[in-house]
């Protein structure tokens, strides 16, 4: 069992957990993820490592399905059954020069550990974060500190730049002030945003989030097509060259179990209402 050292709701439906995982935290690097399982009947879900502090690792998630909703119902001092990691190949951190790290929605959570690593490697780092509206923005202060510069975007203009991170990235590309780019967010956002750097051939990494089971290369559930080849996101990734990813296949494969996911969540809501377990 692994203890949740600190649980916090940081935006509408978005939660930040610090979990005590002495086998994960000391060796975790930017770009890697953990697989967690809440209890004996739980499923294994991958979550990107957002930050580490001593023996603790931070995960940030949006409560959307059954497992994340159940997780959100846990609090400081509660325990989860399993956390395995760090998994996946770390981000390619080196002295690129000028880097842009771009986060969309809950994907913003993956940026702090990456921005710090890139800064430590001698890069100038521009952070660009976007959300539908102000209430969904997360970790703004932390990223302002971790990056040299931070641009905030909202789809509705409720704060910061009224528009998408892609618009800001296009500007950076046009001004020729960026040498490497990371984009982390929903698949559709990564697909569209990465188009901005395609023509200029700027190295652009995206963190793919297909459905996984074991997370160690054993099942092939997370297979993605990159540059015409089948790769396993869990062990060959999760970061890949954005310009080589078959985005449509990824998005289709993320929707293998829509009915089961719905059923599972409904069942959870019914159960928690009946038992009054929900906080």
């Amino acid at each position: 069992m692994y203890k949740i050292q600190h649980a916090d709701k940081i935006a509408e439906n978005i939660y930040e957990f610090w979990i005590n995982a002495p086998h994960v935290a000391p060796n975790a690097q930017a770009g890697q993820f953990v697989v967690i399982r809440i209890d004996g009947k739980g499923e294994r879900i991958p979550l990107t490592i957002s930050a580490v502090d001593g023996e603790n690792v931070r995960i940030v998630f949006m409560a959307v399905g059954k497992t994340t909703t159940q997780l959100a119902d846990l609090g400081t001092g509660d325990q989860i059954q399993d956390i395995a990691g760090p998994l996946g190949v770390p981000s390619e951190v080196k002295d690129w020069g000028r880097c842009a790290v771009i986060g969309g929605g809950v994907g913003i959570a993956c940026l702090p550990i990456l921005a710090r690593a890139l800064k430590d490697a001698g890069n100038t780092v521009t952070g660009i974060i976007g959300a539908r509206n102000e209430s969904l923005l997360i970790l703004e202060d932390e990223l302002r500190d971790a990056c040299d510069e931070l641009v905030v975007c909202t789809d509705d203009g409720s704060t910061g730049f009224h528009g998408f991170p892609a618009d800001i990235l296009k500007k950076l590309v046009a001004e020729e002030v960026v040498d490497a780019v990371w984009i982390i967010g929903p698949a559709i956002m990564m697909k569209i945003t990465s188009m901005a750097t395609r023509e200029a051939g700027i190295p652009t990494f995206v963190s793919l989030n297909p459905i996984m089971v074991d997370g160690t290369g054993m099942c092939g559930s997370c297979r993605v097509t990159v540059g015409g080849e089948t790769r396993f996101a869990c062990v060959d990734g999760p970061e890949f060259d954005a310009h080589l990813v078959d985005w449509d296949e990824l998005m289709t494969r993320q929707r293998i179990y829509p009915e089961q996911e719905k059923k599972s969540l409904e069942r959870y809501h019914e159960h928690t209402c009946r038992c009054g377990e929900r906080k």
Partner: peptide, 10 residues
């Protein structure tokens, strides 16, 4: 030791 990926956790 469960949940330990040797090469990563160790």
């Amino acid at each position: 030791r469960l949940n330990h990926i040797v090469g990563r956790s160790v």
